[in-house]
Protein backbone atom coordinates (compact mmCIF):
# COMPACT_ATOMS: atom_id res chain seq x y z
CA UNK A 1 0.00 0.00 0.00
CA UNK A 2 1.25 3.47 -0.84
CA UNK A 3 1.64 6.22 1.73
CA UNK A 4 -1.40 7.92 0.31
CA UNK A 5 -3.80 5.03 0.84
CA UNK A 6 -6.74 6.20 2.91
CA UNK A 7 -10.00 4.96 4.38
CA UNK A 8 -13.41 5.97 2.92
CA UNK A 9 -14.01 8.05 6.06
CA UNK A 10 -10.72 9.88 5.60
CA UNK A 11 -11.56 10.59 1.97
CA UNK A 12 -15.00 11.95 2.90
CA UNK A 13 -13.55 14.09 5.68
CA UNK A 14 -11.07 15.58 3.21
CA UNK A 15 -13.77 16.25 0.58
CA UNK A 16 -15.94 17.88 3.25
CA UNK A 17 -13.05 19.97 4.54
CA UNK A 18 -12.46 21.37 1.06
CA UNK A 19 -16.01 22.77 1.06
CA UNK A 20 -15.35 24.85 4.17
CA UNK A 21 -14.43 28.46 3.51
CA UNK A 22 -12.28 30.48 5.87
CA UNK A 23 -14.27 32.81 8.10
CA UNK A 24 -17.56 30.95 7.77
CA UNK A 25 -19.82 30.09 10.69
CA UNK A 26 -20.53 26.38 10.47
CA UNK A 27 -22.96 24.14 12.30
CA UNK A 28 -22.42 20.39 12.69
CA UNK A 29 -25.21 18.33 14.21
CA UNK A 30 -25.58 15.02 15.98
CA UNK A 31 -24.06 11.72 14.83
CA UNK A 32 -21.87 13.28 12.18
CA UNK A 33 -18.31 12.20 13.02
CA UNK A 34 -17.12 12.35 9.42
CA UNK A 35 -18.39 15.95 9.09
CA UNK A 36 -16.89 16.91 12.44
CA UNK A 37 -13.57 15.47 11.22
CA UNK A 38 -13.81 17.38 7.93
CA UNK A 39 -14.57 20.70 9.62
CA UNK A 40 -11.83 20.32 12.23
CA UNK A 41 -9.42 19.42 9.41
CA UNK A 42 -10.39 22.60 7.56
CA UNK A 43 -9.90 24.59 10.75
CA UNK A 44 -6.35 23.22 11.04
CA UNK A 45 -5.49 23.79 7.38
CA UNK A 46 -7.07 26.41 5.11
CA UNK A 47 -9.84 27.79 7.36
CA UNK A 48 -8.26 28.85 10.67
CA UNK A 49 -10.85 31.64 11.04
CA UNK A 50 -13.88 29.42 10.54
CA UNK A 51 -16.21 29.52 13.53
CA UNK A 52 -17.32 25.98 14.30
CA UNK A 53 -20.31 24.85 16.33
CA UNK A 54 -19.93 21.07 16.50
CA UNK A 55 -22.43 19.31 18.67
CA UNK A 56 -20.88 17.76 21.81
CA UNK A 57 -17.35 19.07 21.22
CA UNK A 58 -16.24 21.05 24.26
CA UNK A 59 -13.78 23.11 22.25
CA UNK A 60 -16.17 23.72 19.38
CA UNK A 61 -19.49 24.28 21.15
CA UNK A 62 -19.83 27.93 22.09
CA UNK A 63 -23.39 27.72 23.39
CA UNK A 64 -24.84 27.36 26.89
CA UNK A 65 -28.52 26.94 26.00
CA UNK A 66 -28.28 23.66 24.12
CA UNK A 67 -29.11 23.01 20.47
CA UNK A 68 -31.68 25.83 20.60
CA UNK A 69 -28.93 28.40 20.28
CA UNK A 70 -27.69 26.94 17.00
CA UNK A 71 -31.22 27.03 15.58
CA UNK A 72 -31.68 30.60 16.83
CA UNK A 73 -28.36 31.61 15.28
CA UNK A 74 -29.53 30.09 12.00
CA UNK A 75 -32.83 31.96 12.20
CA UNK A 76 -30.87 35.18 12.63
CA UNK A 77 -29.07 34.41 9.36
CA UNK A 78 -25.73 33.88 11.09
CA UNK A 79 -24.95 30.28 10.12
CA UNK A 80 -23.25 30.08 6.72
CA UNK A 81 -22.88 26.36 6.21
CA UNK A 82 -24.65 23.28 7.57
CA UNK A 83 -24.39 19.58 6.74
CA UNK A 84 -27.34 17.21 6.46
CA UNK A 85 -27.71 13.51 5.81
CA UNK A 86 -30.55 11.12 5.12
CA UNK A 87 -31.03 7.39 5.41
CA UNK A 88 -32.61 7.99 2.01
CA UNK A 89 -31.82 10.80 -0.41
CA UNK A 90 -33.88 11.12 -3.59
CA UNK A 91 -33.37 12.51 -7.06
CA UNK A 92 -34.55 15.97 -5.97
CA UNK A 93 -32.15 16.05 -3.01
CA UNK A 94 -34.95 15.50 -0.49
CA UNK A 95 -33.79 13.61 2.59
CA UNK A 96 -35.44 11.15 4.98
CA UNK A 97 -34.43 10.78 8.62
CA UNK A 98 -37.84 9.73 9.97
CA UNK A 99 -38.97 6.30 8.76
CA UNK A 100 -38.32 3.65 6.13
CA UNK A 101 -41.62 2.33 4.81
CA UNK A 102 -45.00 3.73 5.75
CA UNK A 103 -44.78 6.22 8.61
CA UNK A 104 -47.60 4.59 10.60
CA UNK A 105 -46.14 1.06 10.16
CA UNK A 106 -42.44 1.71 9.62
CA UNK A 107 -39.98 -0.98 8.65
CA UNK A 108 -37.32 1.11 10.38
CA UNK A 109 -37.94 4.07 12.66
CA UNK A 110 -35.11 6.56 12.26
CA UNK A 111 -33.91 9.19 14.77
CA UNK A 112 -35.87 12.04 13.16
CA UNK A 113 -34.70 15.39 11.97
CA UNK A 114 -34.16 18.61 13.86
CA UNK A 115 -31.91 20.76 11.73
CA UNK A 116 -33.32 18.94 8.68
CA UNK A 117 -36.60 20.81 8.66
CA UNK A 118 -35.45 24.13 10.09
CA UNK A 119 -31.80 24.97 9.44
CA UNK A 120 -32.28 23.73 5.88
CA UNK A 121 -34.41 26.87 5.33
CA UNK A 122 -32.37 29.39 7.27
CA UNK A 123 -28.81 28.42 6.30
CA UNK A 124 -27.84 29.54 2.77
CA UNK A 125 -25.40 26.72 2.02
CA UNK A 126 -26.38 23.15 2.84
CA UNK A 127 -24.16 20.23 1.87
CA UNK A 128 -25.53 16.71 2.02
CA UNK A 129 -23.43 13.69 2.94
CA UNK A 130 -24.04 9.96 3.08
CA UNK A 131 -21.36 7.49 4.15
CA UNK A 132 -23.09 4.61 2.36
CA UNK A 133 -23.55 5.11 -1.38
CA UNK A 134 -26.01 2.45 -2.52
CA UNK A 135 -29.38 1.96 -4.19
CA UNK A 136 -30.82 1.62 -0.71
CA UNK A 137 -29.75 5.15 0.25
CA UNK A 138 -30.05 6.93 -3.12
CA UNK A 139 -33.65 6.33 -4.15
CA UNK A 140 -36.10 7.69 -6.70
CA UNK A 141 -38.40 9.00 -3.96
CA UNK A 142 -37.86 9.14 -0.20
CA UNK A 143 -40.46 7.43 2.02
CA UNK A 144 -40.77 10.51 4.22
CA UNK A 145 -39.63 14.02 3.31
CA UNK A 146 -37.72 15.23 6.38
CA UNK A 147 -35.89 18.00 4.51
CA UNK A 148 -37.12 19.23 1.17
CA UNK A 149 -34.99 20.71 -1.57
CA UNK A 150 -38.08 22.22 -3.22
CA UNK A 151 -40.20 24.15 -0.74
CA UNK A 152 -43.32 25.89 -2.03
CA UNK A 153 -43.21 29.60 -2.82
CA UNK A 154 -43.99 32.17 -0.16
CA UNK A 155 -41.69 30.43 2.29
CA UNK A 156 -38.50 31.93 3.71
CA UNK A 157 -35.67 29.94 2.20
CA UNK A 158 -32.08 31.01 1.70
CA UNK A 159 -30.62 28.39 -0.60
CA UNK A 160 -30.84 25.04 -2.35
CA UNK A 161 -28.98 21.94 -1.27
CA UNK A 162 -25.93 22.14 -3.44
CA UNK A 163 -24.22 18.77 -3.43
CA UNK A 164 -23.96 15.42 -1.73
CA UNK A 165 -20.61 13.94 -0.75
CA UNK A 166 -20.32 10.14 -0.61
CA UNK A 167 -17.47 7.62 -0.56
CA UNK A 168 -17.91 7.23 -4.33
CA UNK A 169 -18.74 10.62 -5.73
CA UNK A 170 -20.02 14.15 -5.44
CA UNK A 171 -23.60 14.48 -6.68
CA UNK A 172 -25.07 17.88 -7.50
CA UNK A 173 -28.73 18.74 -6.85
CA UNK A 174 -28.80 22.37 -7.90
CA UNK A 175 -30.38 21.84 -11.33
CA UNK A 176 -33.61 20.23 -12.52
CA UNK A 177 -32.00 16.78 -12.63
CA UNK A 178 -29.30 15.31 -10.37
CA UNK A 179 -25.84 15.59 -11.85
CA UNK A 180 -22.66 13.60 -11.32
CA UNK A 181 -20.36 16.48 -10.38
CA UNK A 182 -17.24 14.39 -9.79
CA UNK A 183 -16.17 10.85 -9.10
CA UNK A 184 -13.81 10.14 -6.23
CA UNK A 185 -10.25 9.03 -7.01
CA UNK A 186 -10.16 5.59 -8.59
CA UNK A 187 -13.96 5.31 -8.84
CA UNK A 188 -15.55 4.74 -12.27
CA UNK A 189 -18.69 6.46 -13.53
CA UNK A 190 -20.13 2.97 -13.98
CA UNK A 191 -19.66 2.20 -10.26
CA UNK A 192 -21.53 5.36 -9.27
CA UNK A 193 -24.37 4.65 -11.72
CA UNK A 194 -24.71 1.05 -10.50
CA UNK A 195 -25.00 2.19 -6.88
CA UNK A 196 -27.46 5.03 -7.41
CA UNK A 197 -31.20 4.34 -7.48
CA UNK A 198 -32.05 7.26 -9.78
CA UNK A 199 -30.80 8.43 -13.15
CA UNK A 200 -27.86 10.83 -13.00
CA UNK A 201 -26.98 13.35 -15.64
CA UNK A 202 -23.45 12.38 -16.67
CA UNK A 203 -21.55 15.25 -18.24
CA UNK A 204 -18.88 14.41 -20.80
CA UNK A 205 -15.44 14.03 -19.18
CA UNK A 206 -16.62 13.80 -15.57
CA UNK A 207 -13.86 15.19 -13.41
CA UNK A 208 -12.18 13.18 -10.69
CA UNK A 209 -11.87 14.75 -7.23
CA UNK A 210 -8.19 15.27 -6.37
CA UNK A 211 -7.06 12.64 -3.84
CA UNK A 212 -6.23 13.64 -0.27
CA UNK A 213 -2.80 15.23 0.02
CA UNK A 214 -0.22 13.89 2.44
CA UNK A 215 -0.62 17.08 4.49
CA UNK A 216 -4.39 16.59 4.77
CA UNK A 217 -3.94 12.96 5.84
CA UNK A 218 -1.22 13.86 8.31
CA UNK A 219 -3.38 16.46 10.09
CA UNK A 220 -6.39 14.15 9.96
CA UNK A 221 -4.53 11.24 11.54
CA UNK A 222 -2.98 13.24 14.36
CA UNK A 223 -4.76 16.41 15.58
CA UNK A 224 -8.19 15.61 14.16
CA UNK A 225 -8.20 11.97 15.25
CA UNK A 226 -7.35 13.02 18.81
CA UNK A 227 -10.12 15.62 18.95
CA UNK A 228 -12.70 13.25 17.48
CA UNK A 229 -11.79 10.59 20.05
CA UNK A 230 -13.35 12.54 22.93
CA UNK A 231 -16.82 12.47 21.36
CA UNK A 232 -16.78 9.56 18.90
CA UNK A 233 -14.29 7.05 20.39
CA UNK A 234 -15.33 4.13 18.20
CA UNK A 235 -15.26 6.14 14.98
CA UNK A 236 -11.87 7.57 15.93
CA UNK A 237 -10.48 4.08 16.55
CA UNK A 238 -11.56 2.65 13.18
CA UNK A 239 -11.82 5.52 10.68
CA UNK A 240 -8.22 6.70 10.63
CA UNK A 241 -5.06 4.97 9.50
CA UNK A 242 -1.87 5.29 11.54
CA UNK A 243 0.03 8.53 10.86
Amino acid sequence: MSDLAYTPEELMAVLISREVRDGERIGVGTLSPVVAAGCILAHHTHAPNASLAIWRFKEYWPFTEGMKELFDLGQRGKVDLFFLSGAQIDRHGNTNLVAIGDYSQPKVRLPGGAGSATLSYTVPRIILFQVNHSKRTFVEKVDFITATNNPPPNVYRRGKFTKCITPLAILNFEGENPLLEAVNPGVSVQQVVENTGFTLVIPPNVKEAPPPTSEELQVLRTVVKEKIRAVYPQFSATAFKKP
Binding site: A117, T146, A147, N154, V155
Partner: peptide, 29 residues
Protein backbone atom coordinates in the same frame (compact mmCIF):
# COMPACT_ATOMS: atom_id res chain seq x y z
CA UNK B 1 -43.75 30.68 14.90
CA UNK B 2 -41.10 28.61 13.11
CA UNK B 3 -39.39 29.07 9.77
CA UNK B 4 -39.06 25.75 7.99
CA UNK B 5 -41.10 22.55 7.73
CA UNK B 6 -43.39 23.73 4.90
CA UNK B 7 -42.99 21.28 2.04
CA UNK B 8 -41.91 18.40 4.29
CA UNK B 9 -44.02 15.44 5.47
CA UNK B 10 -44.00 16.73 9.04
CA UNK B 11 -47.08 18.79 8.23
CA UNK B 12 -48.81 15.61 6.97
CA UNK B 13 -48.32 13.71 10.27
CA UNK B 14 -48.75 16.69 12.59
CA UNK B 15 -52.12 18.33 11.91
CA UNK B 16 -51.49 20.45 14.99
CA UNK B 17 -48.66 22.24 13.14
CA UNK B 18 -50.51 25.06 11.40
CA UNK B 19 -49.40 27.34 8.61
CA UNK B 20 -49.93 30.99 9.56
CA UNK B 21 -49.28 34.28 7.79
CA UNK B 22 -46.43 36.35 9.14
CA UNK B 23 -48.41 39.36 10.41
CA UNK B 24 -45.34 41.58 10.00
CA UNK B 25 -44.03 40.25 6.69
CA UNK B 26 -44.97 38.42 3.53
CA UNK B 27 -43.98 34.82 4.22
CA UNK B 28 -45.82 31.80 5.61
CA UNK B 29 -44.71 30.41 8.98
Amino acid sequence: PVRGLIGTDYLRIRPDFQIIKNPYGEDDL
